[in-house]
């Protein structure tokens, strides 16, 4: 349940709070729900990205990188010795 609260908080922070808070939540979320971080990056760019601005969709790339790291770390941790 705490995962759901964290995911919702991260999505709300994209709209209402400074990006630094969102980035902090995304880092925490990356180790709990890596896919949610990818979704978070896509969501931020869905809201704000403009192809006319000429730049890259930074939030999507950020989400993919962070989510990828999260998935990698999780997989490594789960490769446990029993």
């Amino acid at each position: 349940m705490s995962n759901v609260v964290l995911i919702i908080s991260a999505f709300v922070s994209v709209i209402f709070f400074p990006w630094l808070l969102t980035a902090g939540l995304a880092i925490v979320l990356a180790f709990i729900e890596p896919v949610a971080v990818i979704a978070l990056g896509l969501f931020a760019d869905t809201l704000y990205y403009s192809v006319h601005a000429g730049g890259l969709p930074l939030f999507t790339f950020g989400g993919l990188i962070l989510g990828g790291i999260g998935l990698l770390v999780r997989n490594q941790l789960r490769a446990s010795t029993m």
């Binding site: 995911i7 729900e33 890596p34 896919v35 949610a36 990818i38 979704a39 978070l40 896509l42």
Partner: peptide, 14 residues
């Protein structure tokens, strides 16, 4: 997973 649900919703938004 909840992350999967979030991703599906975001893809719908896109």
């Amino acid at each position: 997973s909840w992350g999967g649900y979030a991703l599906i919703i975001v893809l719908l938004l896109i």
